[in-house]
Design a protein around this nucleic acid. Structure first.
Lengths: 349, 349
DNA sequence: TTTTAGCACTCTAACTAGAGGAGTGCTAAG
DNA sequence: CTTAGCACTCCTCTAGTTAGAGTGCTAAAA
């Protein structure tokens, strides 16, 4: 895609068109722009510029005698080069900090609250993806005998996330023995990330098995099972505010909405989509057809990652119509991502 | 509401009208019924009967020259007296059993699967409410020191449900001490239901405090905090299949859908709604305006409860348009509720 | 007494035609 | 380079018309 160079007036007019369309949802005519322009400029002049912008593929007309509407590339230019600097209001900032730092909940609660904030404050769909397991630091392992050979295996991460599964053992084990097994694994594996845990387990198992009593051998194999599986443990996705999307949808968008909702039933795809931004910092904006998922083509996604003390671990964002308020969404996502990072730090210190 | 007595023909025609409307979604004319009738009957005769049914408030016309549509009372009569006996197919039955009994997950996973089954098999919205806390039997208490004075408190129920919160202590406690506290509470409170646990805690605390060392006193107060709060721990709700609802919605139902989705963001209300059926056995059907929630008025809800070995503990159901396939929904909800009860029994034995 | 054919009537959905209006592109003058 | 003027396009809204489905009523048939 060629770099597009626009002179000052063209930039100014493009910005006005996009802003106006975002605000009204109606195609923007030359008169509207001319009126709103600071130095008086005739509609005809505006039309000339708009025709140029259309030639560059930044604007288009729904039909010959309608006003202009931004194309995907138009939005892209707007977001990249024209976005009015905006900070979230200090009162909103405060709400965010208080909501995310005071909660008495576990990690899941924190993330759900974050998603709710994204949704409420942007009036769009809020999405939060839980920390990836590869960055999760193991804190504690516990085995609880539920009944007979049924055992609840659970581990807690340093940031307070809780993962659990139920396993059916081949032979019964007493709770006392299970407790010993849990303590053994907690002591030997605590503080490591899950990939490290897996490696360490393999290492321990390959050592001269005579060193360990039979119980601990079993502990190792149970641990291996637990953490081997943890790859497909779908890390949670927290989606809030579906009704916001429906609110803005016109009657003809109904089909899009159907597809969209159906797509959202496959959480795996959402995770992958959001986790793209684990590798690069800052807020990212994906506009309309740039989207890899066909169902999201008529939408835009504003997203960023959040970190534990060292690395990006999870992602969050706002999904809305292409004519969303990008300036606001960007500052909002940025603020909430930072607040999540902050809240995570507080938990682990 | 007066008992309505209908003769054989009227019942038969009402049934045909409701069935036809459920199937087609179009107002049903007298010709349609006359054609589908086993013994040939003229449209005029059918019209007479239909006029009677309209007089009884069981049918109505969208406008003078349209066919008939069932009223809420019409659906009610159909569900109460005309519902064709139907059992779920044996292959579906098998899918349900396998899905709900083989899963290696915790309780949350089981309930999510149940919700997914309800949604997929009914092509409507599936809703499952987690077991109420008042019936939850405590299995184990655990305290984990996350950092500084931050402690993850968690308890596990007999059926494998896991509840956790994070608490900020006034003074630091070592993990060893926390473990002792957890063991103490597990031993003294395990096997009791949560209300019993609360009572027992109060009792223990009121005893001569000199009997206990300081640590155990702290354990008691932490436990009291933990379980006192557990009342507002929103028991989970698992809702799946929103896109199904959208699929059937016509363009003019868009507003209803908005309201509906907005209502569903308040999970508390959903819990209350479903938990109504904890007190009475069997499948219950709530039709249209019978619904207590105004947003659900254009919808119908088919629901039932599921039990642990003794008592009803949770509820599940299917929400769909008033013209849903009641026969199928009823048998489906019944089957899945039974399967959940069964799966719960297996877990706790 | 019950059923049915016939008929006039009602109301909607779909189509057509025309008026009004917003907005454009082009041209020529400032 | 800007702008006024103008012809043109195309959408949207309204009103009027038609076709069709379905009804209720009446009177004849069973």
């Amino acid at each position: 895609m060629p770099e597009i160079q626009l002179d000052k007036r063209a930039r100014s007019i493009l910005k006005a068109v996009v802003s106006s369309f975002i605000h009204s949802g109606q195609p923007v005519g030359s008169r509207t722009i001319a009126r709103a322009y600071r130095e008086p400029l005739s509609p005809a002049s505006v039309r000339n510029v708009m025709a140029d912008l259309e030639g560059l593929g930044l604007l288009c007309q729904p039909h010959t005698s309608a006003g202009r509407v931004p194309t995907d590339r138009g939005y892209r230019y707007y977001v990249d080069s024209l976005l009015p600097a905006q900070r979230i209001s200090s009162s909103e900032e405060r709400v965010i900090r208080e909501t995310l730092q005071e909660g008495p909940e576990d990690l899941a609660g924190l993330l759900e609250r974050a998603s709710l904030l994204l949704s409420r404050l942007s009036r769009n769909l809020g999405i939060v993806v839980a920390p990836v397991l590869s960055q999760t630091i193991l804190k504690h392992v516990e085995f609880l005998r539920l009944s007979g050979r049924r055992v609840l295996t659970l581990f807690v991460s340093k940031s307070g996330a809780l993962h659990n599964r139920i396993v059916q053992l081949e032979e019964e084990i007493s709770q006392a023995e299970l407790t010993r097994m849990g303590n053994f694994l907690s002591t030997h594996l605590g503080g490591k990330t899950l990939p490290q845990v897996r490696k360490e387990l393999l290492h321990l198992m390959s050592e001269d098995t005579a060193l360990y009593d039979r119980l601990l051998q079993r502990a190792l194999s149970l641990g291996a099972w637990m953490f081997a599986q943890s790859e497909d443990l779908q890390s949670g996705v927290y989606i809030e505010g579906a009704s916001n999307l429906l609110d803005r949808a016109g009657t003809q968008d109904l089909e899009h909405m159907r597809d969209l909702f159906r797509a959202f039933e496959d959480k795996h795809r959402i995770v992958q989509l959001l986790n793209q931004c684990l590798t690069s910092d800052g807020v990212q904006v994906v506009i309309g057809s740039e989207n890899s998922e066909p169902e999201l083509r008529p939408m835009s996604l504003v997203m960023a990652n959040y970190s534990n003390e060292e690395n990006p671990v999870g992602a969050l964002g706002v999904l809305g119509p292409m004519r969303m308020e990008y300036a606001r969404a960007v500052s909002l996502v940025d603020a909430i991502a930072r607040a999540c990072t902050e809240a995570l730090r507080e938990r682990t210190n």
